[in-house]
Design a protein around this nucleic acid. Structure first.
Lengths: 348, 348
DNA sequence: ATGAAAGCGCTAACAT
DNA sequence: ATGTTAGCGCTTTCAT
């Protein structure tokens, strides 16, 4: 391992000078010629800082903890993690992900992260929910991802659920649908609340009246097919806004059973939570793709701004954000998803 | 932060003694009474080792790097990561996951991991493939997950693809299916090769003859629905073994269009890669669930055995492996998946 | 059985 | 503008 000592010896300067140069704190303090020489030798020798040694002194590790309890149980954590890791990597940080599902103890995992000296934390949910920040994280830099802090005290990033539904429903209206149904989620979530409201608002903005009978809220894992099938039989909707693509699947199955074709007889807009379905559900499905990558990315930038006490706007946002790798399949029509960035709120 | 110094002061012993005790190296070297006292005080003060400080001395970080290029693009990375993290956590290690998809540079990410001093690495694929170990990892402890090393030099864990297909096909035979189709994968993968062979072998073991016309290999993202639909029209199979559940979906869709009911008119066995589908596809789908959690778990144990030069069998395998969180939905019938553990092979 | 002391690689306050 | 020095918290040899 190449150390500063080594470089100091080779260049005939002191370790402090090398340290100054390697940390880009040499402007006006080290003669440019010397600095250049040091850099050159360091480069040649393939010098790499030893993060343990510097963090031992500075109490800073350039490490961010990413905590989520749903890494294994949902397929969309990957995008968030990748986004957060991209940003972290750009900024010279390392993202350390811990999932606390499947019997892992959240507190213990957070402790491990703290022991390893994480400078800040990302606390992620996989669907927008009112969320308490774990008490152990109380006095650390924390940013919530796809979640809303209960007391508005913690910065967060989350999809604009209302607009998702408003835009999706409007799209169905514009497509000429007469009877637009909402296949929602029976579990209590912020997302469900906002989306139902957006669905309603879009209908009303078009002068239609909202009907309970066109709304079916089904549980995440349950006998939903039947409920959707009943909706087909009794209400004969010609447009569907679906809470997620798992629910869009029910519409597909029922349509097939009723001899109806998606894109001709009925139109479907779904929120693409699972992504996987985009590979299989035929291209007629219009989706609102939740920008998990972007949420992760923003959150990581934000937490670094907190850690380094810099203004988010002053930070060097790389010009090219690594995009989510595109699917090979033809991508169905998409509706843009707006994000809500809560930078730092003082009170609820 | 509570340090050993602090504990030494409080207990009136030297730092070295505290170190000995805290590292459980006190047997026969420190008077039991003193050791107990030290432990007690440490406990009371909430002492936590400072991993930076110890790794600065020892060059060991108790950290494992998990590298995969498909964390964001596939939904099954989560299980592996959770498994690996569980084992790591049990053994007092921290798992650091880096995904190298979406524009991340694998080499750079590995360098970051090495800079942070990872003691060993897990290199994971999301579908069993012949894999080269990145050159930067050549002289580190590495274990492959759901992958096979090209030169048989690297330990690995992978599903027994042949048996998966053999067992699945046998199940369909036992269910009374007369014409069993295989909906495979047109991309070149070890998994595909093994599964096709297993399908064939099971048919032949039952005295049937294999027919090319009952095999449809479709690409991962492509116009597969048509090919499966043609199969329905021309061959009228009554049993389907599907490479993964995305492919099982095509069978569902075609069955619905043909007015056939799964579980009555046709039987389906799929390999549950995406898991998500288990929530939606009705319970008639029999699945072979790939034990991603277990693969991650074993791989982490193995890499620690390599790091610590201990025998895998001597290691303290915790009695209760944290299981994959069960789905709420009724779980469809399952076929057990056998894993192949390659401990350390000398030559190909 | 216990302690003193050196040093891992680096940073930062203080000298020069 | 550059060097000297004192640690950060821990492990480990070597004395005692």
């Amino acid at each position: 391992m190449v150390t500063m000592k080594e470089i100091a010896k080779r260049t005939g300067v002191s370790i402090s000078t090398v340290s100054l140069v390697m940390n880009h704190r040499d402007a006006g303090r080290v003669k440019p010629a010397i600095a250049a020489h040091v850099r050159e030798v360091a480069e040649k020798l393939g010098y790499q800082v030893n993060p343990m040694a510097s963090s031992l002194r500075t109490n800073r590790t350039r490490t961010i903890g990413f905590i989520s309890e749903e890494v294994a149980t949902t397929p969309y954590a990957g995008g968030m993690i990748l986004g957060a890791q991209s940003a972290a990597s750009q900024l010279g940080y390392l993202l350390i992900t811990v999932s606390t599902d499947g019997g892992m103890d959240e507190g213990e995992e957070i402790d491990a992260l703290k022991r390893y000296g994480a400078d800040g934390f990302l606390y992620a949910k996989m669907s927008n929910r009112i969320t308490d920040v774990p008490s152990r994280l109380k006095d650390c830099p924390v940013v919530l991802v796809d979640a809303t802090g209960r007391d508005g005290t913690t910065p967060s990033i989350e999809p604009d659920e209302f607009r998702i539904a408003y835009d999706a429903t409007t799209r169905l209206i514009e497509a000429g649908c007469e009877r637009i149904a909402y296949i929602g989620c029976s579990e209590a979530m912020l997302a469900q609340k906002g989306r139902l409201a957006g669905y309603k608002a879009a209908l009303e903005a078009d002068g239609r009246k909202f009907s309970e009978r066109l709304v079916v809220n089904v549980p995440n894992n349950g006998p939903a097919l039947e409920a959707v099938s009943d909706l087909f039989d009794w209400e004969r909707p010609d447009g569907f806004f679906c809470f997620n693509d798992a629910r869009a699947w029910y519409v597909y199955e029922c349509a097939a059973r009723h001899g109806l074709t998606i894109g001709r007889d009925v139109s479907v807009v779904g929120v693409d939570n699972h992504r996987v379905f985009a590979e299989t559900l035929s291209p007629q499905l219009t989706t609102v793709e939740l920008p998990h990558f972007e949420m992760g990315y923003w959150a990581a930038m934000k937490v670094v701004s907190l850690i380094e006490r810099r203004d988010l706007d002053d930070m060097e946002w790389p010009e090219t954000t690594a995009p989510m790798p595109p699917l090979d399949a033809e991508i169905p029509a998409k509706i843009h998803c707006t994000l809500i960035e809560k930078e730092s709120v003082r009170e609820g």
